[in-house]
């Protein structure tokens, strides 16, 4: 399958302040965030962002608070105007859109889910869910039918007539998700959508999202500060630090080859056995002993399979092809090796 770029971000800069444009050159020639703030009282939001987001995939953008991830996602539907750079969606220049085109783009092509749900408190669940549809110009009756379908999909059947304040946080965010899905937009922007939920509810919501994505194949941009969440749902992960992209890649890439200490600190505490797969380990020549497992098997599952089979070596296969073998010892070693930076205490703002 040839992957198509859905959202293309080129050389994006955002400098907050009255005269942002005049400082772009300084930032390009190396002025940092603290210096810009001190000398010119402008806040550097994003710098030199280049990101291709693939159609039908979940692109996670991760970073600590203040790293610019919420700013970045708001550039995609132009809730925030960039200071410099380009954004293309399906080869259409988002920045060249007129007000009218932008409004239609937001109505039909990109919908959004918010961290604090952003529901209308005076409207029922159903009336909230049809919001985007009525903006598209749909009749209320038809909109309600479609909205009811999506409410059912997110598990809120029977709650149509409740008000948001009567629902728990998790249920409110389901309304937010149904509202965004109902518009049938190709692009779903999720700004820390699950961050305000408690862990069990959060993993429920992640599951719902992954299930829906199996069949919908939307292009999802997902913002989070939680690496476990990023690894669980992200096809691709981009890591932001102080408004700059420090690393992009698959979850395997990031766990195996952290680009710098910042990323290293991020991945320090994650469950490597769950993220890494057999295919990522250095393989020895294929032996005939041991059980055969696919190269996509996580280390965690491989260990379990070995213990269950009372064996101590795995033959890694890809389809029918034997790739090599790996011992229990190597698997455990890879799963427990913490990164070299683990011992140092590094603090980030």
């Amino acid at each position: 399958m040839v992957s198509k770029v859905k959202i293309k971000i080129n050389d994006l800069y955002k400098i907050f302040g009255p005269k942002g444009e005049s400082h772009v050159e300084k930032v390009k020639s190396g002025m940092g965030k603290p210096e810009l703030l001190e000398k010119h009282s402008h806040v550097l939001g994003l710098q030199n962002i280049n990101l291709d987001i693939i159609e039908g995939k979940i692109q996670v953008i991760m970073g600590l608070s203040g790293s610019g991830k919420s700013t970045l996602i708001r550039h995609i539907n132009r809730l925030i105007e960039p200071t410099a750079g380009q954004i293309f969606i399906d080869d259409t220049d988002v920045l060249a859109m007129s007000d009218e085109e932008l409004m239609n783009f937001r109505r039909f092509k990109a919908s959004m889910v918010f961290q604090k749900f952003a529901l209308l408190p005076h409207r029922t669940v159903l009336a909230n869910t049809i919001y985007g549809l009525t903006m598209q110009g749909l009749e209320v009756k038809e909109a309600e039918e479609r909205a009811a379908h999506w409410l059912k999909r997110v598990g809120l059947e029977g709650f149509e007539d409740r008000y948001p304040a009567q629902l728990s946080g998790g249920m409110q965010q389901r309304v937010g998700l149904a509202r965004a899905l109902a518009t049938d937009a190709d692009i779903l922007l999720m700004d820390e959508a699950f961050s305000a939920l408690d862990p069990l509810i959060r993993s429920d919501m992640q599951e719902i999202l992954l299930e829906l994505q199996e069949e919908l194949h939307k292009t999802i941009v997902f913002i989070t500060h939680d690496l476990d969440e990023a690894l669980r749902i992200g096809d691709d992960i981009a890591i932001l630090r102080d408004g700059r992209l420090v690393q992009q890649g698959s979850s395997q890439d990031i766990v195996l080859n952290p680009a710098d200490d910042y990323v290293g600190d991020f991945i320090k505490d994650i469950n490597r056995a769950r993220v890494l797969t057999l295919g990522t380990l250095p393989l020895k020549k294929a032996s005939t002993k041991g059980i055969a497992l696919s190269n996509n098997t996580s280390l965690e599952n491989a260990m379990k399979a070995l213990v269950d089979a009372k064996k101590d070596s795995v033959i890694v296969v890809k389809g029918d092809k034997k790739l090599g073998s790996v011992s229990m010892h190597d698997i455990v070693h890879a799963a427990t090796r913490s990164s070299e930076t683990a011992g140092e205490a590094v603090t980030y703002r």
């Binding site: 809730l79 239609n104 039909f108 990109a110 959004m112 529901l119």
Partner: peptide
């Protein structure tokens, strides 16, 4: 009025 709710209205293309 809550800024995030307003932002949501914008994000869904309200005039």
């Amino acid at each position: 009025v809550d800024a995030e709710v307003l932002e949501a209205a914008d994000a869904f293309g309200s005039n």
